[in-house]
Every structure is written in structure tokens, then in C-alpha cells.
Design a protein around this nucleic acid. Structure first.
Length: 300
DNA sequence: TTCCAGGGGTAGA
DNA sequence: TCTACCCATGGA
């Protein structure tokens, strides 16, 4: 029988836990969102290899309640690891006060920031976020969801109390996987090579991907390093910059083009990316979030 | 069938 | 720096 351990995490002000649903990541395995309870679920593999099930939700206006379901007993180190991962995923450490001040009186974005939105969900590791971002390129969103689900179902560590639930695979698990599994079961198309090569570069060549997950790195250098990853171009690099906490670049994709064209160019087909990007230039270091919340409640 | 999606790599100019 | 072409997958 699994046992349940609970703890709480203090939240910033203002803060809205439903912010996690502002980013599509909430719909990508192993994450899921329970609309009824307003909670975020996820199976997480801990450093010692055991998989636990997390259930995150609002506790009160000042804190979140995190429920950890585990088959093996959890010690203080386990709990510290889980707390750090949750803190990281929810971006509770980021200072958005400059963006909030800039956006306060904006017709569309103002209400969003006053409600405490803006902390877009990310993953515990940059590896997971790079893989997921690669899985959003040149493909429909529904296919992104099924591809990521197949990757998790095929390679992730199962949660012992419910073997249908799995954690996101580690770089080691991806590197060790038989390529036939990618071709026959995971089916990411030409992205198979990108994802496996990334995992191998981490495991075999010592590529320190997680060291790039540092907001203190100079943004241009970080962007260059991200773009050196096979399968990561301008769109993916800027998405990952946002993940790490730099919001000064727009991730221009077909969704961005459609939204901005409709909102600011009367649906004109001939508008260039440069012209569309100029719409948000005044937001400077906060362009990504400005675009994101300029869509209002529809969001993602 | 053909097109194309929350693009990226490569070659050639 | 810009453009053209190719790329696996699977839904429309």
C-alpha cells in the first residue's frame, strides 16, 4: 500500500495556482491537470531511482499543498528534493515585479497580472523541457501530446503502485533505449535522432545541459548554447529562454503569427515576422510574457 | 491524394 | 543574412 506525505509551500503575492494551465506543458505527460479538483498531478523519479506520485493544489491564499504518494518510505532528503523540484516547476522563485508594474494598466494583460498570472509551468529538468520543445516543432499540438505520451509510456520509470503511470525518462534512459523503440513505438519521426543524440551527448560526451538552466548566464550566450543543440532553432531556443527565465525574445511560430495577424494586422497574410515582432518591442525584457498574456483568458 | 502543423538543417547565393 | 528544399508523422 502506498503511503501519503503532505507538505505546504509558501507562494508569492499575488499568485494564482491556475497559472500552471496557462502553458500547454500541463497537458504533456507525465503532467496532468484535474479540472474538478484544480490540482496538478505528475509522477516524478527521484535521484535514488524510485518513482513517486505528486498531487499539487492550492492550500490557502498564501500556500500550496503538495501530496506525495510513495510505495517506499520517504526520508528528509527525498522531501527536500521534491520540494525543490516543485518550487522549480512552478517558477516560484522568479521575480516578476518589473513585468507586473509594466503591465498593470494594460487593457488585456493588466487583469492577468493583477490576478497573479505569469509563472508558466516548466519541468524539473532542462532535459525534459528541451525534448518537449523539440516535440512541438513542425507538428500539430495533438501530435505533440501523443508523441510525448509514447516517450513516457515506453521509457519512463513506472510508479510501482500503478504501473500505467510513469515518470519522464532520464537522459540515461533515453540514451540506453534501443533505437528500434523510437522507430516502432515512440515514433517522433526525424526528431528521434535529435532526442537520442541529445541524450547521448549528455550521457556519453559529458554535455552539461543542466548547467544552462541558470538565470544568471548572459542571455546571448545562453541562447547560442541552446541553438547549438540539434533540433533547436530560433523558435525552440526562445521558448527555452522563457523556460529558464529570460523573456526578452519572442518564440515566433504559426500560432504567434495567426494571433498577431488577427489582432493587429486585420488578418493580412503578407505581414513579415519582423513587423509582427515589432508589436511587442516596447516590452523589452518582457516581450514573451506580454505576447503570451496579450491573448487574454484564451491563453493556450 | 495532398497539405501542413506551436520549425530546423543544410546548401548555395 | 536570405532563400529554397528537404525532412517523419499523422490528422484534415
Amino acid at each position: 500500500m502506498p503511503s501519503i506525505t503532505e507538505f505546504t509551500i509558501e507562494t508569492p503575492h499575488p499568485y494564482c495556482f491556475a497559472s500552471v494551465t496557462d502553458h500547454g506543458w500541463v497537458a504533456l505527460a507525465p503532467c496532468s491537470w484535474d479540472v474538478e479538483t484544480g490540482t496538478l498531478q505528475r509522477v516524478e523519479r527521484l535521484a535514488d531511482g524510485q518513482a513517486v506520485r505528486l498531487d499539487m493544489g492550492e492550500n490557502n491564499e498564501d500556500s500550496l499543498r503538495i501530496e506525495v504518494e510513495s510505495v517506499d518510505p520517504l526520508n528528509a532528503d527525498h522531501m527536500a528534493e521534491i520540494r525543490a523540484k516543485v518550487w522549480h516547476m512552478l517558477k516560484l522563485d522568479e521575480d516578476l515585479s518589473d513585468f507586473y508594474a509594466l503591465a498593470e494598466d494594460h487593457a488585456t494583460i493588466g487583469p492577468m497580472v493583477r490576478a497573479g498570472r505569469g509563472r508558466l509551468l516548466r519541468s524539473p529538468t532542462l532535459f525534459e523541457d528541451v525534448v518537449k520543445t523539440i516535440c512541438t516543432t513542425n507538428i500539430t499540438w495533438s501530435q505533440t501530446k501523443t508523441m510525448v505520451a509514447r516517450l513516457v509510456d515506453t521509457l519512463g520509470t513506472p510508479y510501482p503502485a500503478n504501473l500505467t503511470l510513469r515518470a519522464f525518462p532520464t537522459a540515461q534512459q533515453v540514451a540506453d533505449a534501443n533505437p528500434v523503440l523510437f522507430d516502432k513505438a515512440i515514433r517522433m519521426g526525424y526528431r528521434n535522432q535529435y532526442v537520442q543524440n541529445l541524450a547521448r551527448s549528455i550521457v556519453d560526451d559529458g554535455f552539461q545541459l543542466e548547467a544552462l538552466d541558470d538565470r544568471n548566464l548572459e542571455p546571448a550566450a545562453l541562447r547560442k548554447a541552446l541553438k547549438s543543440i540539434q533540433g533547436v532553432g530560433d523558435y525552440a531556443a526562445n521558448t527555452l529562454m522563457m523556460i529558464v527565465g529570460h523573456y526578452g525574445h519572442l518564440a515566433i511560430d504559426s500560432e504567434f503569427r495567426a494571433q498577431v495577424r488577427a489582432r493587429y494586422f486585420d488578418g493580412a497574410e503578407t505581414v513579415s515576422d519582423r513587423e509582427m515582432a515589432a508589436v511587442y518591442a516596447d516590452w523589452g525584457d518582457w516581450q514573451y510574457l506580454a505576447y503570451w498574456f496579450d491573448q487574454g483568458e484564451s491563453g493556450m
